[in-house]
């Protein structure tokens, strides 16, 4: 088993984890709440992409890349809208209800979405078809990097950099950071807290939905429970990097992806347990995560 090949595979999966982890971390940042439904929003994105690729593949012949852009945009918008709806229906009424009610409500949304996906798309695994020509790829020092891996890595990286700049350099981003520190004071400074929270609930799920699409493209197969497995792993990534910390989520995702890929080289059976072991260790030993100075006061 070539270790460099595992590193490339790990980084690819890790960048997907990182994209999903951003949703957890952003919501946690503004609401101090774990959005349990985030993984299922990710799954919704994957399944929507499956359907849309089915439609575009049938409609057009050849220009698969245009189709990819259209599908990506549609998935991001649709899943973002679903995130907004979840916020409006299930979380906003509970914003001042303490910790347990929003948590249970989020679990409810998760159960609802997962079973909704099962009812619409079926309980059996579905093949994810698309007409992108992905035979190309490069071989660097004996490590094969497929075109799909390059697309995923570049696309994920671009999204993360864009998000980082948005949060750090724009006025709206500053408002988000202000809310993460203190709702009340932010409101007194003239920030429309509800609007910003809505924005977070749009951006996070939109990124998660795109990650879902990438998983479909990468593995060619979907199962209605992927929301739960990827969700937990991405959550682990968010914790690993320090929840509430956006660059932390990116680092956490990549580290987790690498750890899993390397562990899979040793024992494939226990690969799925790695994330949970990491999760427990990090919470017990270093709950602020690798980069998480922000959350120090919150755990």
């Amino acid at each position: 088993m070539d270790i460099f090949q595992q590193v490339v595979n790990g980084l690819t999966v890790g960048s997907i984890y990182a994209l999903v982890a951003l949703g957890y971390t952003m919501v946690y940042g503004v609401l101090k709440m774990i959005n349990f439904a985030h993984g299922d929003l990710f799954a919704l994105g994957a399944y929507l992409a499956l359907t849309l690729f089915g439609v575009t593949t049938a409609a057009s012949s050849g220009s698969g890349w245009l189709a990819l852009l259209v599908v990506a945009l549609a998935v991001a918008l649709a899943v973002g809208a679903a995130g907004l709806a979840a916020e409006r229906i299930a979380y906003r009424p509970l914003r001042h209800a303490g910790r347990l009610p929003p948590l249970v409500s989020a679990l409810g949304v998760s159960v609802f979405l997962q079973n909704g996906i099962m009812l619409v798309w079926g309980a059996r695994p579905r093949a994810f078809q698309h007409n992108l020509s992905l035979e190309a790829g490069l071989t660097l020092f004996g490590v094969r990097i497929s075109a799909m891996q390059i697309i995923i890595l570049v696309f994920a990286l671009l999204l993360m950099v864009a998000l980082y700049l948005f949060v750090q350099r724009t006025k709206v981003g500053a408002a988000m950071r202000a809310i993460a520190v203190d709702h009340e004071t932010a409101r007194l400074m003239g920030i429309d807290v509800t609007r910003i929270i809505q924005l977070v609930f749009f951006i996070g799920p939109a990124l998660g939905g795109l990650a879902g699409m990438m998983v479909g493209l990468y593995y060619h197969q979907l199962n209605f429970t992927i929301g739960w497995s990827y969700g937990l792993k991405a959550f682990t990534a968010a914790i690993l990097g320090g929840i509430g910390n956006i660059p932390g989520a990116m680092v956490g995702g990549l580290v987790l992806g690498l750890a899993e890929a390397l562990a899979a080289g040793v024992s494939g059976q226990w690969k799925d347990a790695i994330a949970f072991v990491v999760l427990i260790l990090i919470l017990v030993v270093r709950p602020t995560g690798l980069l998480g100075e922000r959350v120090a006061e919150k755990i």
């Binding site: 072991v277 017990v284 755990i299």
Partner: peptide, 24 residues
């Protein structure tokens, strides 16, 4: 080792333990 964790973190860790048990 996990009793000191706050509510939602405790919840996630218990999910993790249960999954490890199932995988084992």
């Amino acid at each position: 080792p996990i009793l000191h964790l706050r509510g939602d973190y405790l919840l996630i860790v218990t999910v993790g333990f249960a999954e490890i048990v199932r995988i084992a």
